[in-house]
Write a protein that binds this DNA or RNA. Structure first.
Length: 513
RNA sequence: GCUCCCAUCGUCUAGCGGUUAGGACGCGGCCCUCUCAAGGCUGAAACACGGGUUCGAUUCCCGUUGGGAGCGCCA
């Protein structure tokens, strides 16, 4: 099954375990692999590390596959199941045994624990030196099923030459004889990884820095088998805003959540790749340039923190530069991933940056309490006609950092009469605004015969304001409040046009009467 | 505790012995303006500390401090 690697084109892989979602840190690792392969006519393979049957299931795997596809990281060939290759792993373990490079260890878990506790108490490294390494197997107890351990070198050192970390040296005395086969005969992770990487013809292993010590142990397996060792690149982990390892506490962890929050795949890729990698002062980089420029040798060694503000800014750039019809498509794709009822139940972390999806959920609940999901919201837009939504986009995309913000800003399209004004809009329409209200009303009768498009409406209203010595704001603000129920919206003239004459006039008279 | 890794504005980073230490996000101010944005201009903001090496250290070496990862018959 070795890939026929042409010349020296790299073969890389992304090897997630099926945890139920594609972790944002894993996504970056996958992205690095993908860029590296794509930039060098290499292959980007996908392997699911599903040897732990406990946490393995179909949904968990497809969640990862979906995340990869959404991010645009297409892999070559079929995803490989590590579990399905267990026989081959056992075969290699047997070969290691034959070569005398591995041995059966009959130490009980209790025995091992005790030794570790003792080592810890004495301040020694917590490694277990099995007595069975040198003992005669004939002394083995009959009632204990043995594990198979690698007979790792005790002297010297194991060196990992790493494209990111540099030359990392591990004294062999600190590395114990790792278990390669469990007492039930199943292979362990380190064995499986080495065998699979070797069989798949992997030339470059690019993965999280949490695997650095594994690289040393895996190196010992490669050496015991006489296999050539792949190039390594251990990329630093992504941390939360507070510098600690990214966890649930930090909010989003899975790319599915980033998707639901309204981030564009291209923007997320751009953001992720800049975490630990850069190309001069470049910030917004096309995928083509990323592929051209990316190199594992340029990855930084220090971990980076996730900064949603910067992601938002980048996403805003991408939204502004995405064609309107494409944004409509993206919104339609994104909406089914939103559950407003569920989002509204999330207690917002006061220290965390405001989340656009939570804001949207709150706004939907306020204005359209009957709507509980993104699917229902989507149906509401469809009823009004998506073309109306698309017409609002040029004005909306200028002021949206996420797709959820875009949708939030477009809510006025499907708002139901009478429009429920929020606090600020109510103020504009309240007693203070009564005079203005009258003004708005008067204007209406005069612009009824004007062409119903933004430019004509603007000219008409502006000239009216001028001839009556009124500030535009004194007209536009109450008008905005009447039309959208908010004090903030796209330019009122655009709102008027998108709404259409009948609906706009109906909303105005409803708010006056 | 042991092993390994890291350290430039609040954050992401450029720098690869001699720079007014650059850019981006965020933050402040001004301009634009019907609100909010976007855009333009502008301001504040960093080489963790201590020793070396060197004519000269942000840059090289050592230590301290502070972070992080790993130490499973998990992956």
């Amino acid at each position: 099954m070795a890939e026929t690697a042409t010349s020296n084109a790299p073969v890389v892989r992304f090897a997630p375990s099926p945890t139920g979602y594609l972790h944002i840190g894993g996504a970056r690792t996958a992205l690095f692999n993908w860029l590296y392969a794509r930039g060098r006519q290499g292959k980007f393979l996908l392997r699911i590390e599903d040897t732990d049957r406990e946490r393995n299931n179909e949904q968990a795997i497809s969640a990862i596959l979906d995340g990869m596809k959404w991010l645009g990281l297409e892999w070559d060939g079929d995803a490989v199941s590590q579990f399905a290759r267990a026989d081959r792993h056992r075969e290699v373990a047997a070969e290691l045994l034959r070569r005398g490079a591995a041995y059966r260890c009959y130490a009980s878990p209790a025995e091992i624990d005790a030794a570790r506790e003792k080592a810890k108490a004495e301040g020694r490294p917590q490694i277990f030196l099995s007595p069975w390494r040198d003992r005669d197997p004939k002394d083995a107890p009959n009632d204990v099923k043995p594990v198979v351990r690698l007979k790792a070198p005790r002297e010297g050192e194991t060196v990992v030459e790493d494209h990111v970390q540099g030359r990392v040296v591990f004294p062999n005395k600190d590395l114990d004889d790792l278990i390669i086969l469990r007492s039930d005969g199943n292979p362990t992770y380190n064995l499986a990884v080495v065998v699979d990487d070797h069989d798949m013809g992997i030339t470059h292993v690019v993965r999280g820095a949490d695997h650095l010590t594994n690289a040393a142990r895996q190196t010992q397996i490669y050496q015991a088998m006489g296999w050539s060792i792949p190039e390594f690149a251990h990329v630093p982990l992504i941390h939360g805003a507070d510098g600690a390892k990214l966890s649930k506490r930090h909010g989003a962890q899975g790319v599915e959540e980033f998707r639901a929050m309204g981030y564009l795949p291209a923007a997320l890729r751009n953001y992720l790749v800049r975490l630990g990698w850069s190309h001069g002062d470049d910030e917004i980089i096309s995928t083509e340039d990323l592929i051209r420029w990316f190199d594992i040798d340029d990855i930084n060694k220090s971990p980076a923190r996730l900064d949603f503000k910067k992601l938002d800014d980048l996403n805003g750039h991408y939204i502004r530069n995405t064609p309107d019809e494409e944004l409509v498509r993206q919104v339609k794709e994104m909406l089914p991933h939103l559950d407003f009822a569920q989002l509204a139940s999330i207690a917002p972390d006061p220290k965390a940056p405001p989340r656009a999806d939570l804001a949207l959920a709150r706004e939907v609940q306020r204005q359209l309490p009957a709507i509980a999901t993104g699917i229902e919201l989507s149906e509401r837009f469809a009823a009004k006609g998506w073309n109306r939504f698309e017409r609002a986009i040029p004005a909306l995309k200028e002021r949206s950092k996420t797709l959820t913000e875009l949708v939030n800003g477009a809510l006025f399209i499907i708002a139901e009469r009478p429009i429920a004004p929020d606090d600020k809009a109510a103020k504009l329409l309240g007693s203070d605004g009564r005079a203005s209200n009258g003004t708005v009303l008067k204007i209406l009768s005069e612009i009824l015969d004007s062409d119903w498009n933004a430019a004509a409406l603007e000219t008409r209203i502006k000239s009216y304001a001028e001839t009556h010595g009124l500030k535009l704001g004194s007209i536009a603000q109450p008008l905005r409040a009447a039309l959208t129920g908010r004090a903030v919206s796209p330019p009122v003239f655009d709102v008027l046009e998108v709404l259409g004459r009948d609906e706009a006039l109906a909303r105005i008279s409803a708010s006056v009467g």
